[in-house]
């Protein structure tokens, strides 16, 4: 990954497993940041102009192979990186991204992809200014058919503190958690 060479903007990542409250926090942060005068762009997986629709169609209509899916997601990421995030960062925006390469890598590895291959693929990414990892105990989250998959992603995610991320345990009440991310940004 390359460091941003002094773009005026800031790249802030919100990570965490399904149902942990990522989009709620992104929305709250966005409102707060805008209220104090920062321009904000928010983005997230499968929201690219290039590949978002293609991924949704592929997932609903056909059987999407394992490798094909990883590459499709990487294409979506690259398009958002180069056409949305970079442009916004250069223009001085705060970019809030709901999931980043960490989720993509964790999910791909759990699904059996070669870790080195996935990491190399996402080597194009920029190092974020801050990463918030929203954590919750697996048992506390709303269950579902993919609980086992989520649990494994969660285990990978829990190693993330070694990478210097801010960890926020989302069993605390919402206002407390959001305050805690605000303090880290400020």
């Amino acid at each position: 990954m390359s460091r941003l060479s002094r773009t005026p903007g800031k790249l802030i990542v919100i990570e965490g497993t399904d149902g942990v409250g990522r989009s709620t926090h992104v929305a709250l942060l966005r409102t707060w940041l805008e209220s104090i005068g920062y321009a904000v762009l928010d983005t997230g997986m499968t929201r690219s102009i290039l590949a978002g629709r293609g991924i949704k169609n592929a997932r609903s209509g056909h059987t999407l192979g394992r490798l094909t899916m990883q590459l499709y997601y990487a294409t979506d990421f690259a398009d958002r990186l180069e056409n949305q995030m970079l442009a916004a960062l250069r223009a001085g925006f705060i970019v809030l991204t709901d999931r980043y390469i960490y989720s993509a890598i964790a999910r791909a590895v759990v699904r059996g992809a070669d870790p080195e291959w996935v990491r190399a693929m996402y080597g194009i990414a920029l190092v974020p200014d801050a990463v918030f990892y929203l954590r919750i105990n697996v048992s506390r989250r709303a269950g579902g058919p993919r609980t086992d998959f989520r649990a494994r992603v969660w285990i990978i995610g829990n190693r993330a503190w070694t990478w210097g991320w801010a960890m926020i345990t989302t069993t605390a009440s919402l206002p407390i958690r959001n305050c805690s991310s605000r303090n880290s940004i400020g």
């Binding site: 290039l50 590949a51 590459l71 990487a74 294409t75 690259a78 398009d79 180069e82 056409n83 693929m121 194009i124």
Partner: peptide
């Protein structure tokens, strides 16, 4: 872009 052309 060259990157997305390559990845797609």
């Amino acid at each position: 872009t060259p990157t997305t052309f390559s990845l797609l």
